[in-house]
Simulated scan of single mutants.
Amino acid sequence: MRHTSLLLAATLGAALVAGTAQARDYSEIRLGVDLPYEPFMYRQADGELTGFEIELGEAVCAYLEATCTWVEQDWDGIIPGLLARNYDAIMSSMSINEERAQQVLFSDPYYTTPSVWVTALDREIDIDDRASLEGLVVGVQRATLQDNYVTELYGDVVEVRRYTGGSEVVTDMRAGRLD
């Protein structure tokens, strides 16, 4: 299961730990996001951001009487971007794990999403039969829990291809470049 948490005030918390906290006006909260992940966050035809996490972030900002500013960041740089203070929090379906918890502060989880294996409709792949996986190509988004999972448990039998974003995985899956 994947527990997703808002990293609200993580930058402030990191600054306090480092002893470098300075007064800051939080009437604007900058939220780091990795697009697109429908239905959680994506751009509408008119360019406006929308989706579950965008709406949730806007609700948090409204509650805090602040304005949300959305900062786009590729996933593999999302924690470094927070630590560099490019934004105040991450609102981008980040799963809580021990490694990340050593770097940033998490809120309580706001939803849990299971990970899934996806293949073409005309394929049958049994992930429990390691021998049948030999030579298959599996796509994952780089620096995710799924990347770690596939690499650790199946990296010796499948070719793992890492992508910057989830949409690239979908594109290669649809094009038949992934099993």
Rank of each mutant, 00 (worst) to 15 (best):
S132Y: 06
W70I: 13
Y110D: 13
L82G: 02
S93T: 08
V118W: 02
D126R: 11
V150S: 06
Q141R: 15
V104R: 06
D74P: 14
M41R: 11
D126Q: 10
L121M: 04
Q146A: 14
E55T: 11
A66D: 02
I54F: 12
Y42K: 07
A45Q: 10
A89I: 09
L105C: 07
A66I: 04
D76C: 04
G51E: 05
R142V: 12
P36N: 04
D128G: 08
T69D: 05
V71G: 02
D88A: 10
A62T: 08
L121H: 07
D76M: 04
L56K: 15
P114K: 01
T119H: 13
D122H: 11
P36M: 01
E152V: 05
L136N: 03
T151G: 02
T144I: 01
M41V: 11
I54Y: 10
A45G: 06
Y111P: 01
W117Q: 01
I78S: 05
Y149S: 01
T113I: 12
E98N: 02
Q103H: 09
V150D: 01
G81A: 12
E53G: 04
D88Q: 06
I127M: 08
T112S: 06
M94V: 14
P36S: 07
T112P: 00
V150R: 04
L49M: 04
A120D: 09
M91A: 14
M94L: 15
G139I: 00
N148K: 11
T119C: 12
Y111N: 15
E55F: 03
P39A: 01
M91V: 15
D76P: 12
L145S: 13
S95Y: 03
V33L: 11
V118M: 11
D76V: 02
I127F: 09
P36L: 00
S115I: 10
W70P: 05
A62P: 06
V116S: 05
F40H: 09
A143V: 14
V71P: 05
T119Q: 13
R43V: 03
G51S: 01
Y42F: 15
T119R: 12
G32C: 09
D156L: 08
R142E: 13
Q141W: 01
D34H: 13
E38Y: 10
E152K: 08
W75F: 10
L153C: 06
D74H: 08
I54A: 07
I125W: 07
W75V: 02
P114A: 05
L82Y: 03
T112K: 02
D122S: 13
I54E: 13
N148D: 14
T144Y: 00
Y37V: 07
E99L: 09
S132K: 07
V138R: 01
I125K: 03
A120R: 15
L64A: 11
G135S: 00
G135T: 03
L136C: 08
N86E: 15
I79S: 02
V150C: 07
A59S: 14
W117L: 04
Q102A: 12
E38R: 09
E99N: 15
Q44E: 14
E53R: 11
T113N: 10
S92Q: 00
Y37K: 09
F52T: 15
T112Q: 03
A66G: 01
A101E: 10
E152Y: 05
T151Y: 02
